[in-house]
Every structure is written in structure tokens, then in C-alpha cells.
Design a protein around this nucleic acid. Structure first.
Lengths: 317, 317
DNA sequence: AGCATTTGTGTAAGTACTTACAAAATATAT
DNA sequence: ATATATTTTGTAAGTACTTACACAAATGCT
């Protein structure tokens, strides 16, 4: 099984599954040992009912950490085998109250004894190992409850990507990328307007020459994000043309671009940043908020139809 | 979840299953993170094919530790999604050789990167814990490969039962049990013969008064086993009427009875033990062998039709 | 009291594997 | 060379759970 060795803990899930399967098989063998006509998967439910009778399905499920559906299925089988009986609740007619039948009660001491034997065997097994599996599971469950594996992986990937993302200044060779990335998202949500086409086709004329700046994000040799600072009166820049390629979204590239834009505005002596957007663009607004932008009380009307929100960020110089 | 706390490690199997399920769910979330249209269960197969192309189904299965059936199913899906292609083997037409398609090869770097990220995340997770889950699994698998859980449980149970089993001397009140236990197994395999009935109905007359002894095994207040020493010429006793109740079989009660009988024969100054049995009775012969009995080369003919094997145990006094 | 909402349960279908079985190609024995 | 055994694979069904859905009973709200 070089597979596990090569991949290491990345295959943790697979390995856990294998071991749990092995344990389940062994459990079946244990029942055979005691001549008990009983299936391992019944145990949690039976144990719970025997310990505290007159519980209903939902309560049993909660105690053993399975779903009510699983409990319901197991109870059906236990009933068929004559080990438990189910009655409608008296006060609450929806509930199914469960108790042991006489033959279930007969079985109970044997199962208890068996559980005690299994417990002892497992404890001896665990005592033999340097790394205690039972405690390790507990610690792992705790660690995962604090931060999920997926979000841990995301953190790692974001760090790696951030190290690979470069923020570049616009040069004329970037015009096609600049246009493509912006046209892409505008067309997805709205319609390309005349004003858009002018500035996307001729950013030199419409953005740079009037004193603006354009920043680009490069990842693995490809331009995957853009954003522009457009000069406005009163030491203000408008943050516009913010776009990240769909394939590169979720990598924190917007954040990097935004931060770079804010830093650049500061360098240029801006006292205020301003932007226009649309409330439909949730993730974008989220990003702006993270960067420090807040809703403007009132501002000049926008030339774009699609803008229904304005935000600003005062820059204390 | 008091269930796990109450039962402790006896519920190890359940707990492993829960954790592995959680890891599987998380794995799916990780794929979503990378925008990869890929299911976690494909990974082992895909990984193996990408690392070493032109393997066939059986080889892949062996490497990843799954069955060929599982590999076959996953390959079907991978093919449907255009990630791998399967060809008949040239030399051996039974084999299905697997290689990546161009689009599978495209996906490979992303998956490799992702696996590396997952590995790092998991390693950080493991480093945070006091009991290393990865190593604990390895140790547990090793321990179980040396002795299965079922056999460990059996050892523990046998010890417990042995402590509870008492070997008693026959008194007339035991006659019904003595008869019941012997009749039970004789009728299961053969037919009760006249000779049987005499000694079972009147053990005093046929066994004890001629100088024999009867031992009984008592477990939890019930007589669950019998065995008799019948006096023969030349300081020899015949070990006969060995019976253990079906419900109590496998508990090592036969062994205890047998050992007690041998010890008693020694006390009585016997120089040899003798018995007759049938080769159909595998477990019984096994027990006799464990007690030290060996096949007799030739002996006097038995009054019982069912006897086709004779064994003896010389007792060095 | 009449309505929507919540709660409790059961059933069906899915999941990621397994075991069991079947069929074809190849290897081995006579 | 022919019959038999073994290898290789695919398919079906099972396992021990899950999620999704449906429906009745109870509760909350006006």
C-alpha cells in the first residue's frame, strides 16, 4: 500500500474508513462468539433503550449521535426480531416510545457482559500503543470543530497563491486583458454600456492621461485581475474597473488588488477614495467593506445605469 | 453524546466511522474550493493512474487497497467524465489498461497542488494534537493484524468464564442434568442406544459403584457440562459422557472439565486414560488432542456403534 | 377558533465502499 | 490437444449510515 505512504496524511479519510470497516467486521465476529442473534449496528439503539426505557425516536437519535432515520430503521428490525416494542406516545401522539420486550430484557445481561468484555479488550489494545487512538479521535474532532479542514486548506492555499500573485502597473500591451476581464463580468450581470467601451478600449485616453492609474494582478504568468484609480476633483480617486477572472476567484486576489490600489492612492496624496457599485454584487461589496469603504450619504449621480450604491474611504494622510 | 462516554472505547468503531464521514464531507468541500469538478472518491484511482500510466484494474486496486470492483466502478465514472481512457491489454486481452486523457492530464497539476495543500493542512492539524491520529491508526492496524479484536475479546471472556465455572462432584440430584446434557448431543449426531440409557438413567449403578467418578461444570447456577471417568482394568479409566450444553459451547468449559478429569484420574493413581469417539466430532477430537490424548493403535471393540476412533493418554505418575 | 409554523416520524434514495456472482481470456495438467 | 483451473474484469446487490422528502400531530399567533 505505497499509496498511503506516498500521500501521507492527505489520505487520512480513506484510512479512517478502512479501519472503521475492519472494526465493524470484528464486531460481527464478537457477536458470533457470544451466540447472540444480534447485529452490531443495533447495539447503540438497543443499549440506549435498555438503559433508559420510554425514550422516543428523536431522543434516542440525539443520544447516540445518529439521525432519527437511522434509529427508525434499526427499531423496525429490532421490532421484527421481537426485542423491542414501540407504542404511540400518550400525551404526544406523534412520538414512538420504545421499550424492551421480555425477550429483549433477557438478552440485555448478555449484551452488557459482552460490551464490558469488548471494552476491556479495546482498552488493553489502546494501552499497548504509543499513540492513543481514542484520545487522538477526540482531539481531532475538537480541532475540526474549531476550524474545518476545508477552511484550513483554504488558508494554506491563499498564502501560497498570495506569494505567487504579482501586482503590476498597466502598460499598453495589457489592454486586451484589461478589456476582457471587465467585459466578462459586466456582461454576466448587466450590459456593456457606451461609457464602458470607451474606457476599456482606450484606457490611456480615458484613465491614465487624466492622471489615473491601472493595476493588474498576475498569477502563473496570466493576468487574472484588474483595477483602476480614476482621478477626480478634491484629491479624490475613484476605484473602478475592479475585475477578477472567474477561474481565479476565491483566491484572495481582489483583496490584494484592493489593498494595492489603496496604497497607491495614499502614495499619490489622495485624501479620499470613492466607488460606485451595485447591491447585486454581494462579494464585491464585502471586499470593499473589508478594505474600509462605507456607504456615502449622498453623492453626484453616476453615468452608469447599473450603479445603485456609492461608497467612500477617507484616507488620513 | 453521553453514549460514547458511557461506553468508552467499546464504541471505537462507531466513532471512527463518524470521523471518517466528517473527513469525507470536508474533502468534498476542498474540491469545491479549487473549482475542480471532481469527486473525492475518484482521487485514489486517478492519483495512481496519473503517477503510473498503463496499469490495469487489478494492479490499481492492489495499490490503493480497495477491491477491483470499486476501481472498476470509479473508472467507469472517470471515463464518463472524460478524464481517463481504458484500452484492452495487447498481450493479455482480459486486462483493462488505463491512461489519462488530455483533459485528465490538464487536471493533474491542479490536483497535485491541492493534495499538497491538503497534506500540509492535515500535518498542521496533527502537529496540534498530543496523540497523533495518523500514527495511532498505524499502530492499531498493526496490533489488530497480530491478533484480531474478536480473538482478544474471546481471551478476556474465557478468563472471566473460567473464573465463574465450578467443577462439582456428582450427587444423585444431578442425574436429570447428566442425562439431559448427554442425550442432547447424542441425539443431535447419532441415536440413543440401549447402553446409553442404562448409564444415563442409573449412573450410580453403572459408573460410580464400579469405582468411577462423574464431574459436572456449573456456570451461573446452571449445570452446563458433564464428564465421567469409568473404571477399567489395569489402572485405566475411560473418559466418557463428555457433554457441554450448546449455549455454553465455545466458553472453554470442555477444556476445564477435561483438565479436571485428568487431574482426578491422577489423584486416583491411574496410569492411563482411554476414550472412544467419532471422527465426525471435530471440536471434541480437537479438545482431546489438546488434553494430550493420541490415537490408539488398536484396542478392544466398543459396545457403541457410533465409535470409530479410540484415543489414550498415558499418565506418568 | 382558524391559520401557519414547528416538531416527530417514516420512507425512499443516495454514498462509498464491500461481497457474491458471472463471463471471458489465459494458464496448467493430462 | 483437450479439459480443467485460474486470472481478470464487470455487474448486481448488500451495508450502515446519510440526506431529502412527505405527512400527521402539536404549537404559536392573531
Amino acid at each position: 500500500m505505497d499509496f498511503f505512504e506516498q500521500l501521507g496524511p492527505a489520505a487520512l479519510g480513506s484510512r479512517l474508513r478502512r479501519l472503521s470497516e475492519q472494526m465493524t467486521t470484528q464486531a460481527a465476529a464478537v457477536y458470533a462468539l457470544y451466540h447472540v442473534p444480534f447485529e452490531p449496528r443495533w447495539f447503540p439503539v438497543f443499549y440506549t433503550v435498555a438503559s433508559t426505557p420510554d425514550l422516543h425516536v428523536g431522543e434516542i437519535a440525539e443520544r447516540i449521535g445518529h439521525t432519527h432515520a437511522a434509529v427508525s430503521q434499526v427499531l423496525k428490525e429490532l421490532t421484527k426480531h421481537g426485542l423491542v416494542q414501540v407504542q404511540r406516545g400518550e400525551a404526544d401522539q406523534r412520538r414512538s416510545l420504545v421499550t424492551l420486550t421480555p425477550s429483549g430484557a433477557d438478552l440485555w445481561p448478555t449484551l452488557q457482559q459482552q460490551a464490558a468484555d469488548v471494552r476491556q479488550a479495546t482498552e488493553e489494545l489502546l494501552a499497548d500503543t504509543r499513540h492513543n487512538l481514542w484520545l487522538a479521535i477526540g482531539e481531532m474532532e475538537y480541532a475540526l470543530s474549531r476550524q474545518s479542514l476545508a477552511s484550513r486548506v483554504k488558508t494554506i492555499r491563499d498564502q501560497r497563491v498570495a506569494a505567487q500573485v504579482q501586482i503590476l502597473d498597466y502598460t499598453p500591451q495589457h489592454q486586451p486583458d484589461f478589456k476582457r476581464l471587465n467585459a466578462e463580468w459586466i456582461e454576466r450581470y448587466f450590459r456593456l454600456e457606451e461609457t464602458d467601451l470607451k474606457s476599456l478600449n482606450h484606457p490611456d485616453d480615458y484613465i491614465l492621461r487624466p492622471g489615473g492609474h491601472i493595476l493588474l494582478a498576475q498569477h502563473q504568468g496570466r493576468i487574472v485581475g484588474t483595477c483602476a484609480l480614476i482621478k477626480m476633483p478634491d484629491a479624490t480617486f475613484e476605484l473602478a474597473k475592479m475585475a477578477v477572472s472567474p477561474a481565479a476567484q476565491g483566491l484572495g486576489i481582489g483583496q490584494r488588488l484592493g489593498e494595492a490600489a489603496v496604497a497607491r492612492a495614499r502614495e499619490l496624496g489622495a485624501r479620499r477614495l470613492y466607488l460606485e457599485s451595485n447591491t447585486k454584487l454581494g462579494p464585491a461589496l464585502n471586499l470593499y467593506h473589508k478594505l474600509g469603504f462605507r456607504k456615502t450619504v449622498s453623492g453626484p449621480p453616476s453615468p452608469y445605469e447599473r450603479c445603485n450604491i456609492q461608497m467612500e474611504l477617507p484616507l488620513s494622510s
